[in-house]
Design a protein around this nucleic acid. Structure first.
Length: 586
RNA sequence: GCGCCCGUAGCUCAGUUGGAUAGAGCGUUGGCCUCCGAAGCCAAAGGUCGUGAGUUCGAGUCUCGCCGGGCGCGCCA
């Protein structure tokens, strides 16, 4: 509807350019927007205001000229010029009636459009370290990333959903050591648990599996483990230095094969748990990309070599540095440590380089907002390697703060005191969780009211929207009870009977859906869709309270059924993109 | 200290890439079920858009300063 109108204006401007009434230079894009006030029509354009200076004419007078040049079509009722030079379009009822037809005909496909033209987009999200279960902070990234991916897919992009698995590096070694220490406890050894170890209960569970399957085959005397190690934090030492020493000692005592086994057991157990957790949450990936595979394939060294060829690598203090400050970063960054190990950043450079080598036209990363300082160095690396950094969009997601009975639920990652995503899903359900996570702008802090999410009342926006859907289903059931049938064709032919104010409001709301979907997708803002669905549900509830759908007049009844079923279809389509179910009965 | 994000109704937030008289929900107050589901609807009250300047036909929206809050500034990941 909007694009058709835009094309109409474009035609008018073309005509004016050919007759010399407008300069032939490139013109600004045609602004066209929904009016806030019905008195201003359905759509308003500020094109005359924008062109006035360029054309050296008065805005209002220019607006007159443009309006006169508009091709005549039957779906526009009239066009007015108002204020300083707004052009207001009043659409004719048939334009809105057509929306109902389109929705019922296209069904689940309605609202989709081919804008993306099959361009390949990668969306990487969550990517939490597999050192423990996902918590509620990851949940927001999951819901947000999955929805952005769905939205882009609806716009015709070819979307690849990916989880970057940090299966290499120090954190994973800490996990392996933690598991092993808990295992030793099960073997009857007494060892002080390291201050920097993973203390969550899930570590004990993994240790129990190891103990159950292999008995004492991985045991060593506690004295061998700690002999000669530097002091841990409680003893006045450095917990980082201590844990690193402990890891080294563990590898030595276990030998590489047995150490590897413990390491893999921890990694795989947790990764399986994360996979299952996300799957239950309705988040499905196309690929789980291993960080370890990057270095094993030599991709990390290749990336460093590439930066080296570009002349952006230098050596200092025994380490290799990337000259990121030459590309807008605050300072240069180490890619290879003094001890020869490459850094996490080096892996990330290689990973992002591969993303583009794999042929994606656009790459989207969803990060926790606390990583925002990391962005300049990643963009710097891409630029240095000759990749256009503008092809990478990083979306930052703020944390969600849980409230129960108005009181903030305390959470800290240390000491394992956090609420897991699984716990949240069990407490409030998947639908409210998915919806609440995306109902606010992602870069905004989210106050997640657990009691509200659980409440089955009008206060809960999820139920409010789902209720509108169930209501239409209920009407269809009632129709059968009364022994009537729905004649879609008859309703279709009599949509002009929909003349009530609430019906017109509903038609306008329905016609907005494709525009909302497009804006939400292109701006990566799922909350726009969530917001819209609430408005649509409200328009339906208002209508439903004021007028009966199942009236005696069969012609009017069918027209109203068509309208109601169109509403149901849009709610279903919209909720589906958000990963929320549309129940027929509640 | 430097960088990024955020300040809109009592609370939580929208505000259509600079447009016309700034909007929802919750909460408060008052109405609506002999009638398709009251998990619903309607109405009222509630605002110096943190603040001071600037840009222009026009600023909640863009620029700068200030105030207040969050995050980040590792040879960690």
């Amino acid at each position: 509807m909007k694009t058709q109108l835009q094309q109409l204006i474009e035609q008018a401007l073309q005509g004016l350019r050919q007759t010399g009434q407008l300069p032939a230079t490139t013109l600004p894009s045609i602004t066209l927007e929904r009016t806030r006030d019905r008195a201003h029509g359905d759509f308003a354009s500020t094109i005359a205001l924008a062109l006035a200076k360029l054309a050296r004419r008065q805005p209002r007078e220019l607006a007159q000229t443009i309006v006169a040049a508009l091709p005549a079509v039957d779906w526009i009722d009239r066009v007015e010029i108002a204020g300083p030079g707004f052009i207001n379009f009043f659409l004719a009822p048939p334009a809105y009636q057509q929306v109902v037809r389109d929705i019922l005909r296209q069904g689940d496909a309605y609202g989709r459009n081919p804008l993306g033209a099959g361009n390949r987009v990668q969306v990487e999200f969550v990517s939490a370290n597999p050192t423990g279960p996902l918590h509620v902070g990851h949940g927001r990234g999951a819901a947000f990333g999955a929805t952005v991916a769905n939205l882009l897919e609806a716009l015709g992009f070819q979307v690849h959903r990916e989880y970057y698995v940090n299966d290499a590096g120090r954190q994973m070694n800490i996990l392996a050591a933690s598991v092993w220490l808990r295992y030793l406890e099960l073997c009857g050894e007494t060892v002080a648990f390291p201050a920097n170890g993973y203390k969550g209960g899930y570590v004990r569970e993994i240790a129990a599996v190891l103990h159950g399957e292999h008995g004492a085959a991985y045991a060593v005397p506690a004295a061998d483990l700690t002999a000669g190690l530097p002091p841990d934090e409680p003893q006045g030492g450095d917990k980082e230095i201590y844990i690193d020493a402990l890891i080294e000692r563990s590898r030595t005592l276990l030998g590489e094969n047995r150490y590897r086994y413990v390491f893999e057991l921890g990694l795989n157990t947790i990764l399986d748990d994360i996979r299952e957790d996300l799957r239950e949450f309705g988040v499905i990936y196309d690929e789980w990309y291993s960080e370890r595979s990057l270095s094993e394939r030599g991709a990390v060294n290749k990336a460093i070599a590439r930066l080296h060829e570009a002349g952006q690598i230098y050596e200092k203090d025994g380490a290799l540095w990337f000259r990121s400050s030459a590309f807008g970063d605050e300072k240069d960054r180490v890619v290879q440590r003094e001890n020869g190990q490459t850094t996490y950043f080096a892996s990330d450079i290689a990973y992002h380089l591969e993303k583009f080598e794999r042929g994606f036209d656009r790459v989207i990363d969803v990060w926790g907002a606390d990583h925002h300082g990391y962005l300049p160095r990643v963009k710097a690396a891409l630029q240095a390697m000759g990749v256009d950094p503008a092809k990478l969009d990083v979306l930052l997601v703020q944390f969600a703060i849980l409230y129960r009975q108005g009181i903030r639920v305390p959470m800290s990652t240390r000491a394992g005191e956090f609420v897991t995503l699984r716990e949240l899903r069990q407490e409030v359900g998947n639908d409210p969780a998915r919806f609440f996570y995306v109902m606010r702008k992602s870069e905004q802090h989210l106050d997640f009211d657990l009691d509200l999410a659980k409440s089955q009342s009008r206060d809960n926006p999820v139920y409010y929207i789902q209720y509108a859907h169930a209501r239409v289903c209920s009407v269809m059931g009632k129709l059968r009870e009364k022994g009537w049938t729905w004649d879609e064709a008859r309703g279709d032919a009599n949509l002009s009977r929909l003349v009530e104010a609430q019906e017109e409001a509903l038609l306008v709301a329905l016609s907005r859906y494709p525009e909302v979907l497009e804006a939400a997708a292109l701006q990566y803002e799922p909350h726009q869709l969530a917001q819209y669905l609430r408005e649509l549900a409200n328009a339906f509830h208002t209508y439903y309270n004021e007028h009966r759908v199942l009236v005696e007049d069969g012609v009017l009844r069918d027209a109203r059924l068509n309208l109601s079923l169109a509403v149901r279809q849009i709610i279903r389509n919209g909720l589906s993109l958000l990963g929320v179910s549309a129940p027929e009965v509640m």
